[in-house]
Design a binder for these strands. Structure first.
Ligand SMILES: [Mn+2]
Ligand SMILES: [Mn+2]
Ligand SMILES: [Zn+2]
Ligand SMILES: [Zn+2]
Lengths: 132, 132
DNA sequence: TTCATTTTTGCAAAAATTTGCAAAAAAATA
DNA sequence: TATTTTTTTGCAAATTTTTGCAAAAATGAA
């Protein structure tokens, strides 16, 4: 399962990477490094988690995002496609949103010559409650 | 000038904030904390730069972005509107792009109840050279 | 301007993230 | 499978970013 996903991206298959990917998938929400370290089955050094995630993010398997809380969050975006978030800069509340401009990517690839692998898109503002 | 811009956002006006904003504006490209610390006219503690930028970013005056180089970059997006980037994950080269979906924000504000102040959008991939 | 109140800044310490290097694991070759 | 080569991992150290607190600066009301 996760083995297949990792191999298909041309990455070397390691137990740690499988473990991290499965952890993100099962939890169905953005996790930070400490969360991952606790939830993972294998004992794993923090630097290994950072380095493994870098590979998974660059390949497009994992979405890395910055909610401006001082730590990075990571989320598995599987079969059902990816999504982005809207975050309140005051109370830090966040919701998923379903808008994205990935439809424009093919023409952008043509224009720039890049092969696009992933992107980050997050919206910040004030939520209904904090506006009052 | 920068005084006016800062006041209009309802932020308190300090010499450091003006200094940082002017530095970003003059340089016309993303700067990292160390760049800013060197280029700024006033001697300024690093933590002050971080904290000042946080305020400027949340207000929407400054664009904070992550090129995945291990440091944050900051760029002033003034009158002429903002822009985003496409970054090569291999050689770290980056270019400005002119696509954005901020036209969709009014309906998103209506749907979510948020007052949107800013957003981050960055595209990653492999450049023409690194694809070979 | 003066005084009281709120916000920002500098400094030191803490926390998050990255990096160099040798050992371990995975991939490639035979 | 056995051997060789390449990549990943753990550990320690370095770098980047955040935070608590007291002093300084900015704001707002006399
Ligand atoms: Mn999400
Ligand atoms: Mn730019
Ligand atoms: Zn809020
Ligand atoms: Zn490249």
């Amino acid at each position: 399962m996760y083995e297949k996903i990792i191999k298909e991206k041309g990455l070397s298959l390691t137990k740690k990477r499988v473990d991290i990917l499965r952890t993100l998938d099962i939890n169905k929400k953005p996790l930070m490094i400490d969360d991952i370290k606790k939830k993972v089955k294998t004992k794993m050094d923090t630097s290994t988690i950072y380095r493994s995630l870098k590979v998974l993010v660059d390949s497009g398997l994992v979405y890395q995002t910055d909610f401006r809380e001082g730590v990075s969050y990571f989320e598995f975006h599987g079969e059902n496609g990816h999504h982005h978030h809207i975050i309140c800069t005051t109370c830090k509340k966040r919701e998923s949103i379903d808008i994205c401009m990935d439809k424009a990517f093919p023409s952008l690839e043509k224009k720039t010559g890049y092969k696009i692998t992933n992107h980050i898109f997050e919206i910040f503002g004030l939520c209904k409650t904090c506006l009052k």
